[in-house]
Measured scan of single mutants.
Amino acid sequence: KNAAKIVNEALNQGITLFVSDNKLKYKTNRDSIPSELLEEWKQHKQELIDFLTQLES
Rank of each mutant, 00 (worst) to 15 (best):
K1L: 12
N2Y: 10
N2L: 13
N2Q: 10
A3V: 11
A3P: 11
A3D: 01
A3S: 05
A3M: 11
A3T: 05
A4E: 14
A4R: 09
A4H: 07
A4S: 09
K5I: 13
K5T: 15
I6C: 03
I6Q: 02
I6A: 02
I6T: 03
V7Y: 15
V7K: 02
V7C: 05
V7W: 09
N8L: 15
N8P: 01
N8Y: 14
N8W: 15
E9S: 06
E9Q: 07
E9A: 07
E9P: 00
E9V: 05
E9D: 11
E9M: 06
A10I: 01
A10Y: 02
L11H: 08
L11G: 05
L11A: 14
N12Q: 15
N12H: 11
Q13L: 15
Q13W: 15
Q13V: 07
Q13K: 09
Q13F: 13
G14Y: 04
G14K: 04
G14C: 07
G14Q: 05
I15E: 01
I15Y: 09
I15T: 02
T16D: 05
T16K: 08
T16E: 12
T16Y: 15
T16L: 14
T16F: 15
L17S: 00
L17M: 04
L17P: 01
L17Y: 01
L17T: 00
L17K: 01
L17C: 02
F18A: 03
F18W: 07
F18N: 02
V19Y: 05
V19R: 02
V19L: 07
V19D: 00
S20G: 06
S20D: 13
S20W: 10
D21F: 07
D21S: 06
D21N: 11
D21W: 05
D21M: 07
D21I: 04
N22H: 10
N22F: 07
N22E: 06
N22Y: 07
N22P: 01
K23I: 13
K23F: 07
K23R: 08
K23V: 13
L24F: 03
L24E: 00
L24G: 00
L24Y: 01
K25V: 11
K25M: 15
K25I: 07
Y26H: 03
Y26M: 04
Y26V: 04
K27T: 10
K27A: 09
K27C: 15
T28G: 06
T28W: 04
T28D: 02
N29R: 08
N29L: 12
R30I: 06
R30F: 05
R30V: 05
R30P: 02
R30D: 04
D31I: 12
D31F: 07
D31L: 13
D31R: 08
D31H: 11
D31K: 09
D31G: 11
S32M: 09
S32V: 09
S32N: 12
S32F: 12
I33F: 07
I33M: 04
I33E: 02
S35H: 13
S35A: 14
S35F: 13
E36H: 12
E36T: 10
L37C: 05
L37E: 02
L38I: 13
L38W: 08
E39Y: 08
E39F: 08
E40D: 09
E40G: 05
E40P: 02
E40W: 05
E40R: 09
W41S: 01
W41A: 02
W41N: 00
W41Y: 04
W41D: 00
W41T: 02
W41H: 02
K42F: 12
K42R: 15
K42Y: 13
K42N: 13
K42G: 08
K42H: 11
Q43I: 13
Q43A: 14
Q43P: 02
Q43H: 10
Q43R: 14
H44F: 13
H44I: 04
H44G: 02
H44Y: 15
H44N: 10
H44A: 06
K45R: 14
K45A: 14
Q46Y: 08
Q46K: 09
Q46A: 10
Q46I: 07
Q46P: 05
Q46W: 09
Q46S: 08
Q46E: 10
E47C: 07
L48P: 00
L48D: 00
L48Q: 00
L48T: 01
I49K: 03
I49S: 02
D50T: 11
D50S: 10
D50C: 07
D50I: 11
F51S: 01
F51Y: 15
F51Q: 02
L52D: 00
L52G: 00
L52Q: 00
L52W: 01
L52M: 03
T53H: 07
T53Q: 10
T53E: 07
T53F: 06
T53C: 08
T53P: 02
Q54M: 13
L55Q: 12
L55H: 11
L55G: 09
L55W: 11
E56N: 14
E56G: 15
E56T: 12
E56Y: 09
S57I: 14
S57C: 11
S57K: 12
